[in-house]
Design a binder for these strands. Structure first.
Lengths: 324, 324
DNA sequence: TTGTATGCGTTATCAC
DNA sequence: GTGATAACGCATACAA
């Protein structure tokens, strides 16, 4: 391994001068610069990032923490990584599998100086446990959290959920089933609020509490929901899911059961992820790419002390044939 | 920031003794160990990875290079990252977007000591350009390559393709269309060989060259293939795709066109990825998780000078309702 | 069992 | 403009 010292010897200068050339800082005369560049070239000199990192105290690396990496993660991850690379930042992956301790290990990496900042895609620990890590560096997430310490690119699912329900009404769906996420999730709470308001606005519609599911229930997969629907006597004529994949699973199972979408049952998803196009799912596009951009830009601005203006995120209905 | 020097002062010992405690190497008496641990705790000492990395010359990080991260990548990525983390290794992502120069930048990271090893998921440069990087550290891939310098976990797609075609024959499909990947890809070459042998074995079947597509053609997406099929006069009664996602796109478009799968047209995929279950796709499971395991274990064994025995990878037909 | 001295490769701070 | 020297924080031969 050749170092700046080797280059310095070969070029007959001091290592500080070589460093100036390598890092392109400070004054070096044309003459000596060329001498040094020639020596660097001949020796095949390669700067050592490890030494640079130690010196600067920075790694130019951001941790991306998630339970796992599946089709649900990939849109976001792809956008995030692309943006990061464009800004000369690396993205380090940490799969926690939903394990709280592993998640804390991952969060600890920032204080060990292994990474400069953290993005949280999914988490198991409470925000109260996570927020203290802020003192070691910036943290962002796409989940809904109201904290001055952690940036969140969340979209208001109250609005989009109301929009989805009103849309179903225009398509003449009268009784609607609701498949919601984790009950403690703020998005879920916002959706429940929207749902209640929706029924307040439309007293003619009946709210069927048997068809409001939260993730904590036994019916976790879309396939379970489909089976439940098929075997029920009182059944809604439309189902709204909190995420596309579960909706896609449901459609898939409905096909096996010979139930027609959207004639027998209308289905709506959320996210406009790749799979939604495959299964013709009506859904809401919440522009994950833009969210990823905002999440990275926040971290970047914190690290470089730039000011940060998030891009506006709209929520747009994407109408496909899973609804009438 | 507190360092081992601070701890040493507080505990009244030398920094080397502290280092021994921190890194858990060498002899330290119970007594002084406790003194040091107490001091570490009181000062809230945190070891600095940057310094450790410089000292060891290692980052415990592996680069994962891919054109992008989509549903196609996620199974592999997930398995790879999980395995890596279990062995205390980090995974760094490099999205190249198919750009040759960006890919070379990513490969260069190993010589800059930014990563210890490299896994290549997708590539743009020729192997000849990639192989020289081997001298900076181990490289593995899941693509088919026969080189002593790069480990490959590839499965023999000649066998699996022949298996797929023979299976279709048992289901009474007589004329088969073939959708293949990049023409320079070794997997594609293996598939073409299998295809030719298949027609040699079964002279009663006619080989329709109009229905053998390689990726370089204009028909890139599954939707294009579906439209082409719908508008053709001479059409095969089954299509075999080189990857599930394109097959899923095709099924999706066929549904829009009112064409029945498997009655009007049988469809087969390859990979057994998540999407295949959603769209009821008959496919081949080539155990990506095991391949990812092998790819990581190879790199790990090279870095730690262990011996490496890859796990056997079988290819299993997964029969769903996209075929009769 | 512990301390001393030196190295890892680079950058920053001074003089000159 | 350039060069000596000291950081950066830790690890490790070697001496004691």
């Amino acid at each position: 391994m050749t170092t700046i010292i080797d280059v310095a010897k070969k070029a007959g200068v001091s290592k500080s001068t070589v460093s100036r050339v390598v890092s392109n800082k400070g004054y070096v005369s044309q003459e000596t610069r060329q001498k040094i560049e020639k020596a660097m070239h001949e020796l095949g000199y390669i700067p050592n990032m490890l030494a640079r990192n130690l010196q600067s105290g920075l790694t130019k690396t951001i941790a991306f923490i998630s339970h796992d990496f599946n089709q649900h993660t990939s849109i976001f991850l792809n956008a995030f990584t692309k943006t990061a690379l464009n800004h000369d930042f690396y993205v380090n992956l940490y799969v926690t599998g939903g394990d709280k301790d592993k998640e804390l290990d991952a969060l600890n990496l920032m204080k060990y100086k292994q990474v400069d900042a953290i993005f949280i895609f999914t988490r198991s620990n409470s925000w109260d446990k996570i927020i203290p890590f802020k003192k070691f560096g910036p943290i962002s997430t796409w989940h809904r959290i109201d904290s001055p310490d952690i940036y969140s690119s969340y979209v208001n699912q109250y609005e989009s959920y109301l929009m989805s329900l009103e849309f179903l009404l225009t398509r003449d769906y009268q009784s609607i089933g609701h498949i919601l996420g984790d009950e403690n999730n703020k998005n879920t709470i916002a959706r429940i609020k929207a749902l209640n308001h929706f029924y307040d606005y439309h007293p003619e519609l009946k709210k069927d509490c048997d068809w409001i599911f939260v993730n904590s229930s036994h019916l976790n997969t879309g396939r379970d929901i489909a089976k439940k629907w098929a075997s029920s006597i009182h059944k809604p004529d439309a189902l709204v899911f909190y995420t596309d994949f579960i909706a896609a699973e449901c459609i898939s199972e409905l096909q096996l059961l010979g139930i027609k979408v959207p004639e027998d049952l209308g289905i709506m998803g959320f996210d406009n992820s790749t799979i939604s196009e495959i299964v013709h799912l009506t859904t809401v596009d919440c522009h994950l790419e833009t969210q990823a951009l905002n999440c990275f830009n926040y971290l970047h601005s914190q690290l470089k002390q730039l000011d940060f203006k998030p891009k506006d995120i709209t929520q747009d209905l994407v109408i496909r044939s899973s609804t009438k």
